[in-house]
Nucleic acid binder design. Structure first.
Length: 299
DNA sequence: CACTCGTGGCC
DNA sequence: TGGCCAAGAGT
């Protein structure tokens, strides 16, 4: 019995009942879920995904609305650039692929906001293809079960893909199922902080456990600060804009943070990212909220 | 390769 | 309390 076999058998009875896993979910639904799940926990994605899919059941629907609506609907999922990229992604799908989410890996990779992981996840989970799909969960599971290391080091995409590829069954449908099974295992059993080894299907063969589950030597990755960073200030500025439909005066945005240098840097960043647009010299709107008439006045 | 980019919950 | 972590992508 291979690791993939054990993972699939475990998944068959332990998988969570997530809405984007139902057979009726479209490739678009899978794509939306994957983008939302980039660095955001499942528990917060679930309601957002339902709302999103109700409002924009296909790429054409999203592409027809301004980016500002996508940014608002994104709410507090975090990293709002993802909302903008998903909006751009919808536009690209309409223009390049007639509104259908492509099933080709390279075509998926060419879409905004779709990287190595997401392209493979969509090709595998939406279209049932056979590709190694490597996220942080899979890297941790493979690192422990196969290599005996307590945690995966920094992501090394090519090596990670090769490692996972060697574990995939030849049978295509089973390969796809093995991929989601490895991810699920890392998400709910082989977790970063308190792994539940007694529940693990790899219990008797895991290299890490057989060597006594040694603790990590140091922090598994660089600590991420938030308080006082530009990210926090950007978040505060965007928070104001999300809740306003009309132009927001610079003076209003000045109230979110006292340090002018940092405030300016944050706003400049948002403008460079295209999340925010200037409306005249001293007003700002969410990207895409620019009224047509006002645009005319600028020229 | 190293760094940036939100937000919230948990131990 | 606060560091740590969460289905990454882009530069």
């Amino acid at each position: 019995m291979t690791l993939a076999d054990a993972a699939i058998a475990w998944y068959d009875t332990n998988a969570r009942d997530l809405p984007w896993r139902t057979p009726s979910t479209t490739p678009w639904g899978v794509l939306v879920s994957e983008v939302m799940l980039q660095q955001t926990p499942v528990i917060r994605v679930e309601p957002a995904w339902r709302s999103w899919m109700t409002r924009w059941p296909n790429p054409a629907a999203l592409a027809a609305d301004p980016a500002s609506e996508a940014i608002r609907m994104w709410g507090r999922l975090g990293y709002p650039r993802r909302a903008m990229r998903l909006h751009a992604c919808a536009g690209a799908i309409v223009e390049r692929h007639g509104g259908r989410v492509p099933d080709d890996l390279d075509q998926l990779l060419a879409l905004p906001g779709v990287g190595t992981y997401t392209a493979r996840a969509v090709a595998t989970f939406a279209y049932g293809q056979r590709h190694p799909v490597v996220d942080t969960n899979v890297r941790r599971v493979v690192s422990r079960a196969v290599e005996g290391k307590p945690d995966a080091g920094p992501a090394t995409t090519t090596a990670d893909l090769v490692a996972m590829a060697s574990l995939l069954p030849e049978d295509v449908p089973r390969a796809a199922r093995a991929s989601i099974a490895f991810m699920e295992l890392g998400a709910i059993v082989c977790t970063a902080r308190s792994p539940k080894c007694v529940d693990c299907p790899f219990h008797d063969v895991c290299a890490w456990r057989l060597s006594g589950t040694p603790l990590p030597a140091g922090p598994s990755r660089k600590p991420q600060r938030y308080a006082g960073t530009d990210r926090q200030v950007r978040g505060l500025i965007l928070e104001v804009l999300r809740h306003t439909t009309g132009p927001v005066p610079r003076q209003r945005l000045d109230q979110v943070w006292t340090d002018e240098i940092q405030r300016t840097r944050a706003l400049t960043g948002l403008l460079e990212d295209g999340l925010v647009e200037p409306l005249g010299p001293d007003n700002f709107v969410l990207a895409g909220d620019t009224p047509r008439a006002e645009v005319q006045q600028l020229f």
